[in-house]
Amino acid sequence: MLADFIQYDFLRNTFFTGLLIGIIAPLLGTFIVVRRLSLIADALSHVTLAGIAFGLFLEKKFAITFITPLYSGMAFSVIGSVFIEKLRAVYKAYQEIAIPIILSGGVGLSVIFISLANGFNTDLFNYLFGSVSAVSQKDFLSILGISIVIILIIWLFYKELVTLSFDEEHATVSGIHAKHIHLLFIVLTALVIAASIRIVGVLLVSALMTLPVAASMRLAKGFKQMLVLSIIFGEAAVIIGLISGYYFSIPPGGTIVVVSIIILLASIFLKRVSFTLKRAG
């Protein structure tokens, strides 16, 4: 792998992109999980697919290449995230209904754009399950830029996000602008999803946002600890997943998720053992 890694640009692009999303997906994922919004990631990833299909359609039918599928996917994802917020405000008592609406809307649009672009091809397959060879230099640089912006914003608004996630009522009473912070957060989530899709694919992107968090939740005492552990688990899953995916010629989405599940099971087991030991000792 090392020789290949030095020789092939695309492998380096993929690997570095993987390292970036190994940070940003669990970073946002931690807030998503504690706020019980895990399914929103799924809904947004399907909207992103519609955006990607739209980009591919433009490319095929009109030879428009300056809007890459990454950018059109991102645009759709962000618009979808704003829609989810609007729907959640409309259906106050049934906030979760926003998720199936946006998810099915995303799939519906995807089907339309895919068939307009003359159906399925390998490119689309890569978007569904991820790929070790699909990341171009341009994509990598875009994702690098997005990652820096995301990490910077989370760093700047960390204390507000934590306070809001823990107890929205108290945060509002103490004078934090819950609505604006929440909107900012959901837009960031949309960007992370769009950025991650090249590596893990539409169908599995929410797994990279939630599984490392589910694992670290078993072990961490506090929030910061959980955040750091989630990122470590996320990175481990991405690195092991990408390498094994490359060797066995399997889309990395599959291997990354399987590694994440192994980490999750190990953390549940570890918690059990330490609990039993504490009781016995």
């Binding site: 107890d167 945060a171 103490s174 004078g175 939740m217 961490a220 506090g222």
Partner: peptide, 30 residues
């Protein structure tokens, strides 16, 4: 103005935060 609600029953229970982290949240807005 400080506010304490019936949150012993209704705060986000699954949230893994230490006592220190929770109390620090009281300073966020300030």
């Amino acid at each position: 103005i400080g506010f304490v609600s019936q949150k012993a029953n209704s705060f986000n229970k699954g949230f893994p935060a230490t006592v220190f982290e929770v109390v620090a949240m009281g300073l966020t807005a300030k």
